[in-house]
């Protein structure tokens, strides 16, 4: 859709998303999407250059669901994330410097280098952590929501997970409990079509993850996960419902991961054409064009935001490279709150 067509589609800027958020908040959302994209490109580059070891799971192409969901959240709201969680961290307010320091295994990192890419957390900003176990974070989010209810707060817990996680028992058990106890939790499924290599067509008996919400008597909403306004409006409704004590919701963001599952992926299970088709639906470019069409930003301002994100990521990598390695005698540190020795 070109700029003119966009104006015609929503001539008076009636969409709640653009009415609810001030221009600064919308610009900040774009900035965060760029930070996520550049963070992951920087991680990939650092891996290629041998600066970091292990593996990584990149969410390039899925930035809209992370940022769109977290725009409604306060610092006291919780999120639980996944192995593909860099975007959720940045969207919830994590500092890329400390994230890269973690990725580089340094003491300055969020987890003092003990967790790495799959366990980045920032508890102070309500991020209870990425998770290496598929669906591991879903019941934890429900537990955080239970705590919120017990403590009589009006916060919410948002649980991010993928289509693959919706085949795990933990997903079903957690949704059921959230619903019977009417807990303030929002389940955000980022359906990127594949659980590693197995497509949703081959792994799910229903077409949509959102169909599963019916089994737990909660709203199940499908949105275009590459459009931040679609994600954000659905999450806005779900968080309002949760804060009002009306219980959980399930939102399915249809999206796509442009990169492979992890570093071992040779893309044997999907076609180049499919990848290119989704790359053309880039969520960042879509959002930029919307902001320009609505007169919220011009191209020059977009360039400035993009350049600032690039600069911030470059500095974050420099910061991480200069970080401190833990010493071998500290291998058992923090296993327990009070050292057993």
């Amino acid at each position: 859709m070109n700029v003119q067509a966009r104006r015609e589609a929503d001539p008076t800027n009636q969409r709640p998303f653009y009415r609810q958020f001030q221009p600064e908040a919308l610009q900040d959302a774009l900035r965060r999407m760029y930070l996520i994209r550049r963070f992951e490109e920087g991680a990939e580059d650092s891996y290629m250059r041998g600066l970091i070891h292990g593996t990584m799971h990149l969410s390039i192409g899925q930035e809209a669901s992370a940022v769109g969901s977290c725009m409604h959240l306060r610092k006291t709201d919780y999120i639980t994330s996944t192995h593909r969680g860099h975007g959720h961290c940045i969207a919830k307010g994590a500092d890329p410097k400390l994230m890269f320091a973690e990725f580089f295994g340094k003491e300055e990192g969020y987890c003092r280098g003990r967790g790495g890419s799959m366990h980045i957390a920032d508890v102070e900003s309500g991020n209870l952590g990425a998770n290496g176990i598929v669906a591991g974070g879903i019941p934890i989010a429900v537990g955080a929501a239970l705590a919120i209810k017990k403590q009589k707060r009006d916060d919410v817990a948002v649980s991010f997970f993928g289509d693959g996680a919706s085949n795990e028992g933990a997903f079903h058990e957690a949704l059921n409990m959230a619903s019977i106890w009417k807990l303030p939790v929002v389940f955000v499924c980022e359906n990127n079509k594949y659980g590693m290599s197995v497509s949703t067509e081959r792994s799910m008996a229903v077409e949509h993850v959102a169909d599963r919400a019916a089994g737990y008597r909660m709203p199940g909403v499908i949105v275009d996960g590459n459009r931040i306004e679609d994600v954000s409006e659905a999450v806005m409704e779900a968080t309002a419902r949760a804060r009002a004590g009306e219980g959980p919701s399930l939102i399915e963001c249809k999206t796509y991961r442009i990169r492979g599952h992890s570093k071992s992926d040779r893309n044997r299970y999907r076609s180049k054409e499919e990848i290119e088709e989704w790359a053309a639906k880039d969520p960042i470019r879509h959002f930029e064009l919307e902001l320009i069409a609505r007169g919220i930003l011009d191209e020059a301002q977009v360039d400035t935001i993009r350049a600032a994100a690039e600069q911030e990521i470059a500095e974050a990598i420099d910061f991480a490279r200069e970080g401190t390695d833990p010493t071998p005698d500290e291998v058992t540190r923090d296993v327990y709150t009070v050292d057993l020795a």
């Binding site: 879903i138 019941p139 934890i140 429900v142 537990g143 239970l146 017990k150």
Partner: peptide, 13 residues
């Protein structure tokens, strides 16, 4: 499984 996870989440929060 789910209930144990709820307990973990509640403990964290």
């Amino acid at each position: 499984l789910g209930a144990a996870g709820v307990a973990v989440g509640a403990a964290l929060a």
